[in-house]
Computed example of a mutant assay.
Amino acid sequence: MTAVPSRVPESFALVFLGGAVGTGLRYAADVLIGTIGDWPGATLLVNLIGAFALGWLYGRTSSRRWRLLVGTGMLGGFTTYSALAVQTQELLDHAPLSGIAYAAATVAVGVLAAQVGSRLGGRR
């Protein structure tokens, strides 16, 4: 989705505000949840919730503003691929099977969560 030049400042503001909320929520999840056994539970949880919520949002609305504020901004700030990649590498270093399982579960359940969210949001 490319922004119309006259809408760039508004688009930036929406993404910025949503991102600020999303990153704050992700930090709260890190503090409150942390790890679950060997797995980075907070990262897993925010990525699965984010996949579901993004699927729901895109199934529910075609509003450019909502997609920028909530999808790109808040959920983009809330979810984290970079932490997933680094934490998977750390698990692979000391518990290879756990690292493989964590990465596979995150991707597989994330895709399923996005599909369920999309269907519940109204997209068939």
Score class of each variant (00 low, 15 high):
66 W>A: 11
65 R>N: 08
78 F>H: 03
63 S>T: 05
3 A>K: 01
3 A>V: 13
37 G>K: 03
16 F>K: 07
117 G>N: 09
110 G>E: 14
43 T>M: 03
97 L>H: 15
38 D>C: 03
25 L>V: 01
75 L>R: 02
26 R>P: 04
24 G>K: 07
111 V>M: 14
17 L>S: 11
30 D>N: 12
98 S>Y: 03
113 A>E: 15
40 P>S: 13
37 G>F: 06
30 D>I: 00
5 P>H: 04
78 F>Y: 10
117 G>L: 02
49 I>S: 04
70 V>F: 13
101 A>M: 08
106 T>M: 07
63 S>M: 09
59 G>H: 05
119 R>I: 12
77 G>D: 12
25 L>P: 00
6 S>M: 04
26 R>S: 06
49 I>F: 02
123 R>P: 06
124 R>G: 14
5 P>R: 01
31 V>S: 01
124 R>Q: 12
74 M>K: 06
107 V>E: 05
56 W>K: 01
97 L>M: 15
103 A>Y: 10
96 P>G: 11
61 T>M: 10
72 T>K: 11
89 Q>E: 13
17 L>F: 14
80 T>R: 03
13 A>P: 04
106 T>R: 03
3 A>H: 07
38 D>R: 13
63 S>N: 14
121 G>K: 06
26 R>G: 07
114 A>V: 00
8 V>K: 04
99 G>A: 10
116 V>C: 06
100 I>G: 14
110 G>M: 12
78 F>D: 07
28 A>Q: 05
100 I>N: 12
116 V>K: 05
91 L>P: 07
120 L>C: 06
3 A>C: 08
91 L>M: 09
10 E>G: 09
112 L>M: 13
51 A>M: 05
77 G>N: 10
52 F>M: 06
76 G>H: 00
71 G>I: 00
30 D>A: 11
78 F>V: 03
42 A>E: 11
37 G>C: 08
41 G>A: 01
32 L>R: 10
16 F>T: 14
8 V>C: 10
25 L>K: 00
62 S>K: 06
49 I>N: 00
46 V>E: 02
71 G>E: 05
19 G>A: 13
108 A>K: 15
23 T>H: 04
116 V>Y: 03
7 R>M: 11
53 A>R: 00
118 S>Q: 14
44 L>P: 12
99 G>M: 09
76 G>I: 00
53 A>I: 00
107 V>C: 08
121 G>L: 12
123 R>T: 09
103 A>E: 06
124 R>P: 12
108 A>L: 15
37 G>L: 08
71 G>M: 02
105 A>E: 03
42 A>P: 08
9 P>I: 06
52 F>D: 13
8 V>G: 05
78 F>L: 08
103 A>G: 10
63 S>E: 15
16 F>C: 15
103 A>T: 09
42 A>L: 08
13 A>I: 01
5 P>K: 02
82 S>K: 11
34 G>A: 06
108 A>N: 13
46 V>L: 00
53 A>Y: 01
91 L>E: 10
101 A>F: 09
51 A>C: 15
112 L>G: 13
45 L>D: 11
37 G>T: 04
70 V>H: 07
56 W>D: 13
62 S>P: 01
28 A>C: 04
90 E>W: 08
114 A>Y: 01
48 L>D: 14
103 A>I: 04
4 V>K: 11
